[in-house]
Simulated assay, not measured.
Amino acid sequence: MAVKKKLGALLAIVPLALGLAACGGNDTPSGPETKDGKTVVKIAIAKEMEVNKVLKEEAAKQDIDIEYKELDNYTEANPQLTQGQVDLNWFQHISYLANYNVDNDDDLQIVGPTAIFPMGLYSKNHKSVDEIPEGGKIAIPNDAVNEARAINVLKSAGLLKLKSDTLQPTENDVDKDNSKVNVTAVEANQTVASMSSVDGSVVNNDFLDDANLDPKNALFQDDASQDSALPYVNLFVAQKGQEDNETYKKIIDIYRSQPVQDAQQKSSKNTAVVVDTDVQKLRDVQKKLEDENKDKEKDK
């Protein structure tokens, strides 16, 4: 959501207190502090990984002192950014950000991309997409963002069709009469737990280790090179007005350095697809998704 972690976890409903706090951030964000000759950048993350450690080490060589704030609940990351408790966060993809901004009347912005982490279809009962029977049952994550992505994975695999063209389909958009499989939406972690009782599960990268799944054994994965994957580009995100901060842009450059990329591949079991798409194109995708979400709200 990609992702960064837990971009593939549940798109939880942010508690009301957090939602209200997210709307009351600083009017004029000040950017990072300077201490002992170094620029201090506080970054909220959902899970400490090797790639975080290496980014910090490489940034220190350029007099940037990164301080990570690992959160118990990743849904805190955006409110804490708005409140100015951190300078950046690094856990979400564009689709998650767009949903959050609309749901919370916020305006957090993309600093730059990191990577896409393909979402895959896995099965303990079949060895190929062709083996999945007519009327087969597929488990998918039930949160709005990852449900849409999982449905698009199954569509690309030729297992289902949609009633109409939409970037963010739900179960209601599935053309059941003309689809080969039936989808069952479950909690994201249950896509793994239910694998023995279904024909397949679309599983977020976050949960591959839980099931000892090798990404190489996916029956099908979404194609990170396609424009349809852009909503799932993972990001560094800042407050509105700080998205073009020079220090933050330097962190994007450091992320793309070879030592950090080697660590990223290790952390992701070599599934990370590094993204160097122009940031304005990504911001355009963010705006398009936010506009779609606003239209959906009006139709309710």
Rank of each mutant, 00 (worst) to 15 (best):
N146P: 07
A148H: 02
A150S: 15
I151T: 01
N152G: 06
N152H: 09
N152V: 05
N152Y: 07
V153H: 01
L154K: 10
S156I: 09
S156K: 09
G158R: 11
L160C: 10
L160N: 07
L160Y: 15
K163C: 08
T166P: 11
T166R: 07
L167R: 14
Q168Y: 09
E171W: 00
E171A: 05
N172R: 03
D173K: 11
V174L: 08
D177Q: 04
D177R: 00
N178G: 00
S179T: 00
K180I: 07
K180H: 02
N182K: 06
V183A: 04
T184S: 01
E187F: 06
Q190W: 08
V192T: 14
V192S: 10
A193R: 11
A193D: 14
S197E: 14
V198Y: 02
V198P: 00
V202K: 04
V202L: 05
V203S: 05
N204K: 06
N205W: 14
F207Q: 14
D210H: 12
D210A: 14
D210G: 07
N212K: 15
N212A: 14
L213P: 00
L213S: 03
D214S: 15
P215C: 05
P215I: 02
A218D: 06
A218K: 10
A218V: 03
Q221D: 15
Q221C: 14
Q221L: 15
D223L: 10
D223P: 08
D223T: 04
S225I: 01
Q226I: 02
D227Q: 14
D227A: 12
S228N: 11
A229E: 13
A229P: 15
L230R: 13
P231N: 14
P231H: 10
Y232C: 05
Y232L: 00
Y232A: 08
V233D: 11
F236R: 05
F236C: 07
Q239A: 03
K240L: 03
E243D: 10
E243S: 13
N245D: 04
N245I: 10
Y248N: 04
Y248F: 15
K249T: 06
K250Q: 12
